[in-house]
Simulated assay, not measured.
Amino acid sequence: MDTSLSLARGTAAPVPATPVAGAGVVRIADDKAMLRAAADLTRDLVKPRPSVYWGDLIASVALGYGALVVAATSGSTAVVVVAAIVSVLGLYRGLSFIHEVSHMKHASVPNFRLGWNILVGVPMMTPSFMYEGVHNLHHAKTRYGTVEDPEYLPLALMKPWTLPLFIVVSALAPIALLIRFSILSPLSLLSPKLRTMVVERYSALAINPQFRRRAPEGEAKAYWNRLEVAASLWAITLIGITVAGVLPLRAFLTILGVASAFAVLNQVRTLVAHLWENDGEPMTVTAQYLDTVNVPPPALLPALWAPVGLRYHALHHLLPGLPYHALGEAHRRISAELDAMSPYHKASYPGLPGLVSKIARSTMVRR
């Protein structure tokens, strides 16, 4: 199988391709100068700042939940629309901390995982076990971009209609999560076969339909079970109080609408997080970096649609242990250190429209 990665972007020179012996595959060689600079220039940035994590999370959810209440109760259409938008952005930012939770050493920010699950994970029916133990596979050097990567699909190589379907289906995520926790969780206690299916196929925030999750063990299993019970009880309660009229139907539908909106927003961000040009072969770290996207300043909107450091997604793949609040400074240092010919600069893009257009064009060119 022949593998190619388009490098026709930016102003830097092409990264040399290296033949893989006996495989007939052309791979992008690792740029050791870039990898070394990224590590050396950021050694003092690796320590997370608990005050930043807690302050950001609490402010995000306070804004998100407060605006959600306004959207669900206001009699003014204009106020409802504005409040709904604010709620979507606030809760989306709060939810995005699941990415940090999946990477951090929990002792470095004590009780943050617990606090995040209480404030966001359980109420939004996306407890941290849905991402922990899954996202790290996406960062495994030999798994990225392969069939074993839970967070990768070769979207740029697929049919054009797959892109709108990829976005539209995400709007159903809140309903799917309600069903998963209010119905499938309790029923799976009665059926080992159903339990296996729930664990393997419905317990991961993954986009690869071939991915099957392994059952947790030990302390991870105990923590999973506690979170699943909490999320299941919340899902059942939410449905129950709506049916009983305690929670007005309007409020319930507003909750679903806001949740669907930030699910779609996150899916759009996912669509442009990578170039999705790999056809399943293992890739070098540099090739993975170039298949991933940074949207740095001066662009302002990425702070809203790619919050909590996600605008530096390519840099994150170089330095997955770096806390989100350090990524901006890391990018400035590395960008200043490496000359214009470095592949580091080739992963930066000006904004969302151009990225969507690039991926859409790729699906059409390859037909």
Rank of each mutant, 00 (worst) to 15 (best):
L310M: 15
E329V: 12
E337S: 08
H325M: 07
P350E: 04
P320Q: 10
L310G: 01
Y349N: 05
Y349R: 13
V308I: 15
G351M: 04
P350H: 01
P353L: 14
H345P: 08
L322C: 08
L327K: 09
A336C: 04
V308N: 09
S348Y: 02
H331C: 01
R332W: 00
H316Q: 13
P320I: 11
L322P: 02
D339Q: 03
A347D: 03
Y312S: 04
L301Q: 08
R332Q: 13
H345I: 06
I334C: 07
G354C: 04
R332Y: 00
L315A: 10
S342M: 05
I334G: 05
V356G: 04
W305E: 10
P302K: 12
L301G: 09
A340S: 09
G351K: 10
R332P: 01
I334L: 08
L319V: 08
A330Y: 05
D339S: 13
P297N: 10
P296R: 14
S342I: 06
A314P: 11
P323H: 14
S348F: 00
H345M: 07
P350D: 06
L300F: 15
P296K: 12
G328M: 05
V356F: 01
G354K: 05
A303T: 14
A326I: 06
P320N: 10
Y344A: 07
G354T: 04
A299F: 10
P296V: 11
L300Q: 15
E329T: 15
H317R: 09
R311M: 15
L327R: 13
H316L: 04
G354P: 03
D339A: 08
Y349D: 02
R332M: 02
L352H: 01
P350A: 02
S357P: 00
I334T: 09
A360T: 05
H313L: 05
R333N: 06
A347E: 07
G354Y: 01
R333V: 04
